[in-house]
Design a protein around this nucleic acid. Sequence first.
DNA 1: GCCGTTTTCGGCCCGACTGTTTTCAGTCG
Length: 609
Amino acid sequence: MSNLEIATLFRNVAAVLTIQNANRFRIVAYEKVADSIEKLTSDIKDLWKDGKLREIPGIGDTIASYIDELFKTGKIKHLEAIIKSVSPAFFIFLQIPGIGPKRADFLTSNLKISNPKTALNDLKKAIKSGKISKFAGWGEKSQSELTKSIASFERGHIKENRMPLPFADSIAMQVLEYLKKLPQVKQADVLGSLRRKVPTIGDIDLAVATNEPNVVIKAFVDYPKARKTVDQGEKGATILLFDGRQVDLRVQTPKAYGAMLQYFTGSKLHNIHLREFAIKKGLSLSEHGIKNITGLKIKDLRFKNFNDKSKIYEFNDEVKFYNALGLDWIPPELREDTGEIEAALRQAQGKQQGLPKLVNLNDIKGDLHIHSNYNLEPSHDLGLSTLEELIKQADLLHYEYIGISDHNPSISGHNQLQVVEILKKRREKLEHIFTSRENSVKNRVQIFYMLEIDIDPKGNLAIPDEAFAYIDAAIVSIHSNFKMNKTDMTKRILSGLRHAKAKIFGHPTGRLLGSREGYEADWNQIFDFCKKFNRAVINSWPERLDLPDLLVREAVKKGVKLFIDTDSHEHLQMFNMQYGVSVARRGWAENKDILNTLSYNELEKWMKI
DNA sequence: GCCGTTTTCGGCCCGACTGTTTTCAGTCG
């Protein structure tokens, strides 16, 4: 079972428990664990194999034992019984927007609908025949809303339709630009998962600081690319764009905007944890500010004048909001409830193991995974840009160096001698171009002559030993036979990394967001090897963002060094560095963990270790 | 069912929006 399937199972259990009037905190526990599993960036089965289930927030003894049972026997007896206690149609209705557990139960029982295959049609018939209008609480509006929701569900709109981060980024920027043109908008920001730089985004969340919310909300629902208004109130609105993407807007006054930023950035689990943390101090948090619910003097916090019980204390910026709770400000990328609140507390108290000093885009001094258009008859796609274009772009980005890492010449088309000859020629040609550049001050970018080399299924590299004389270092990657078992794949990778010049493991898990799961490998072993022999990993191609953030965090914990490289095949793609940096930040990486924050001289030394 | 700067027991986030409500329940994020 996949992460999503397991999350759905727990969510369904929570729904059934809801109609059975179970302890509501038990229900919430199932919902929380579903959220938590859904958002994992590695396969829960791998975590189970590694004995790491209990590290997932929301998994305690009971649920860990359920998951153990699931992977050992294929099912969870106790939960299956719960699921079977309701009509199968119940779970169909649950997926309709606007229908929760109570209404789904009401409809299945009162209309006696049980067959999941015909459930939607049965429901539609019941509306048409006027059966539903006889029930108390089901007025005209409810019925017409239900009809619309069923239709939208049938068109597939309910389905999770997550988009890659850069894609969501560009949509959000357009809407923001539109809103910022309004004179009533004092400040406008992208929040939610987009601000936390989650690799795939569901809805786009925006917030605006304004003293005239009505004008802003009206303008928002009138956005030219909006197809329909889903929700609209005094505090915000939700629209659906023509491409089916949902955009949420929340408005707040400028003087209370800090609390809104905090609230709307999430994550949900971070916010719940933060509010629980606050409530133990007698404080209640919301998007409007902080309330002192007891009215007692708060002693151990930086802001001590919180005594008025009837007042909501407002914060114009987010830093003050966190500080008021006795915490240091937490960077959005860390807000996933994986220990960041505790770290912020330790830091505020001047203790060890505070928040990491996260790597910034400005700290990056070069990009080593770039494909040029030099044709060495490669096994995979050629780059589109010339060396000159790449250097110019690197200079624009204020880089000190770039690595030209074309794919190796294809094995099938060449014998070993030819491969050596091709690489020798490439080195000469690139060196010639590099040294004969216009001698202007601008052209100060240095070059590493590299290669991206396939690791074949047996673990061999795709160029002969003699050919390594013509490269400074290599990125080695998997481009074929992704479906090997974990043991063999791990051996293959380690074998590929064994060559002294194989310094970087490229797009390490092989995942393609939304289309291909990564291959299985023993990351403990790989990281240990990398640590011991000075090898490094990472990639920021938007559809890969690979290593995933959870693995980045493990690598960082183990002291493994990382590169953030773009795998650009065209000079403009070098801008994608920001997305790689965001993954590294979500993995708690600091400058010391990232090798391309080193200067050219330092990195050149590292290459030779 | 989870979890721990006060705790292994006894707590558990908070508000917006909607419909059909005269005060609230259900759903959502």
